[in-house]
Design a protein around this nucleic acid. Structure first.
Length: 577
RNA sequence: GGUCCCGUAGUUCAGCAGGAUAGAACAUCGGAUUCCUAAUCCGAAGGUCGGAGGUUCGAGUCCUCCCGGGACCGCCA
């Protein structure tokens, strides 16, 4: 249950009442238009609404008057402790302890529930999609983790999700891959191949693939063709990549092939569609501005009218030698994805695709006649550190840190959590040391520690009070002893979950969940520490089952809350450290 | 030349849909050990939200321009 929406609904009913009495004129805004939020400063209470500031004039009253009338009605309500007008017309109110206790009871009965926003609609989340020419690097890790968390979020909110990987298994780089693997095969057959020539892939990871290809060639009794080598190499690389992803706990539902799409004529189909609507023409691009334009020559080619969709230039669909551009292939792929998804499309891209998103978004609009819904999440780069020292990665120089190396060092959980501590659009520094440090600087540790503490306290409590071994006991527990501000605040933090998670979904920013987890853990640690100074404030109070049960009910709710958040971001909660 | 992203406390960053006196953490300083794990907690101090305009009752948030940092962009994939 989303408390904020419930309170907005309360406000709407109050407005209706005022309108019936003729106290206000005009239209009462729907609950969705009434903003209810948690005030920044606690002293303003539990909830705050700018309703009077926003809607007063439409209702024919002055903001302070409307606010005063609403506040008066609010204060009379049973679940409201107090309500007041502040500043230019804010309405602030506080719930009674009883109302918070009821909120907790509901959390115990249903845990944290999310509204069914998706309603079974379909969403396709495409992420990673690294070229199958090498193992995954730390550059891919961020998109992998963000995409996976987004996909989980969508399914929690009632969407039917497909996790997709688009394999770029056609084009020049695959030829290079095939040529390298052929060399590695010859090497395995005993030929001295010397150094891997410049322009090919020098990595050792292609050696075992060459060996397997050699073995296959021997049993087949014939040398494989170039095409066969390419298909073989891609299949092997994809299995390597899948292993890397599995190590982080990521599994895609579907792997699409650029090669197959082209073979099936998908590009021609998309081109036909665009041509029918007049989005294509033969023309010449203007000379690009900037430095090295010396060898530029004007050439006529097939162009897409991207400028009609707000792009700065029209974009080439075909190279001068007649081959389709990568852009054309991408349009075909997105068109295909749109047709089979019949719903929303989400692409999670790396920073290196930064300027490409509008182009593909406008092309999808064109090819689907405005029907395609595509959101693109561009993840900024990850800089890798060990303490203060940056580990530089350069793809060109072949120096990169593989995803696998980092997972082996810090574990999948630390990798996932750390990569979800910043919004996708902000650059992120990943410190290999800090990610596993057992200190406050490490938010994952802080959260896991809170979760472990909930376990240890529940375990101890159950030793003292056997009644508590039955979880149903908590559902029936008398919660009225929970009145301390810190306790009510913790319930409020839990109750904020649906709203935070929904905001994460709508903004496509799963990092908001890790921030919320840290907040909740903080509330819990604070609660715990109260017991140090005063024994009566401990969770377990000897000889007082009623008090202990109420507090433990809160602990249990925190535990479940932490677990729900960790599950969405794909981190395993630890029962003990 | 162009596109995208970032600029908030000494540092790393939050800031939810434009809302009140801009929040945390780290570092600094001062506290908490007969106690469910002190791997934590409580408190203090710390700010011209890069700059200038604009929209608005109200701007860190939206718009324009400028400055600084980053990622990219040519019939490469």
């Amino acid at each position: 249950m989303n408390l904020y929406l419930r309170e907005a609904e309360t406000l709407r009913r109050i407005l209706d009442e005022l309108a019936d009495k003729g106290a206000v004129k005009g239209d009462v805004p729907p609950a969705e238009k009434i903003l209810v939020e948690a005030p920044r400063d606690e002293k303003f209470g539990d909830f705050s609404s700018s309703l009077a500031l926003v809607h007063a004039s439409a209702m024919g009253v002055k903001p302070p008057e409307l606010a005063a009338q609403v506040a008066e009605k609010l204060a009379e309500m049973e679940h409201v402790q107090s309500a007041a007008v502040a500043g230019p017309g804010f309405i602030n109110w506080k719930l009674t302890p009883t109302a918070w206790q009821e909120t907790l009871r509901e959390l115990l009965a249903h845990s944290i529930t999310f509204p069914n926003i998706g309603g079974g609609r379909r969403v396709n989340v495409e992420f990673v999609s690294a070229n199958p020419t090498g193992p995954l690097t730390m550059g891919h890790a961020r998109g992998a983790v963000i995409g996976d968390a987004l996909a989980t979020l969508f399914s929690r909110f009632g969407w039917q999700v497909v996790r997709e990987y688009y394999t770029n298994d056609a084009g020049g780089q695959i030829e290079i891959l095939a040529r390298t693997v052929e060399l590695r095969m010859k090497e395995a057959q005993g030929t001295d191949i010397g150094e891997i020539p410049a322009g090919l892939y020098p990595g050792e990871y292609l050696k075992p693939i060459g060996e397997r290809l050699a073995a296959q060639a021997e049993s087949a009794g014939a040398a494989p063709s170039g095409d066969e080598i390419a298909r073989f190499a891609v299949a092997e690389m994809m299995s390597l990549i899948r292993d890397d992803l599995n190590a982080v706990g990521i599994r895609h539902d579907r792997f699409s092939s650029d090669f197959k799409l082209r073979e099936d004529g998908a590009v021609e189909e998309a081109v036909k569609q665009l041509e029918a609507d007049g989005h294509l023409y033969r023309g010449t691009l203007p000379k690009p501005k900037g430095e090295d334009a010396a060898d530029w020559e004007p050439r006529e080619q097939l162009l897409f009218r991207a400028t009609e969709f707000g792009d700065t230039d029209d974009r080439p669909m075909q190279r001068s030698n007649g081959e389709w551009t990568y852009f054309a292939g991408d349009i075909a792929y997105h068109y295909d994805k749109h047709k089979r998804t019949e719903g929303r499309l989400i692409d999670v891209w790396g920073a290196d695709h930064g300027g490409y998103n509008q182009r593909i978004a406008s092309a999808l609009k064109a090819v689907t006649r405005g029907k395609g819904e595509l959101d693109i999440v561009v993840c900024q780069i990850v800089r890798l550190f060990r303490g203060k020292d940056e580990i530089r990665m350069s793809k060109r120089a072949g120096e990169f840190v593989s995803l696998r190396q980092v997972v082996d060092e810090v574990g999948a959980d630390a990798l996932r959590f750390t990569l979800l501590t910043r919004k996708p659009s902000a650059p992120l520094d990943f410190d290999l040391n800090a990610a596993v440090e057992k200190s406050l600087e490490n938010p994952l540790f802080y959260v896991q520690y809170a979760h472990a503490r909930t376990h240890s306290v529940l375990r101890l409590a159950r030793e003292q009070f056997p009644e508590l071994r039955d979880e149903n006991f908590f559902a029936q527990a008398d919660l009225t002893p929970l009145v301390a501000p810190a306790e009510l605040k913790t319930i409020a933090a839990l109750a904020a979950a649906p709203r935070v998670f929904q905001a994460a979904l709508e903004a496509l920013e799963p990092h908001r969940i890790t921030l919320w987890l840290r907040d909740l853990a903080g509330e819990f640690h604070a609660l715990w520490s109260q017991g140090r100074e005063e024994t009566q404030l401990r969770f377990i109070v000897a000889d007082d089952l009623r008090l202990t049960a109420a507090r433990l009910a809160l602990v249990l709710a925190v535990q479940r809350g932490l677990r729900v958040g960790l599950e969405v971001i794909g981190v395993r909660p630890l029962d003990e450290l």
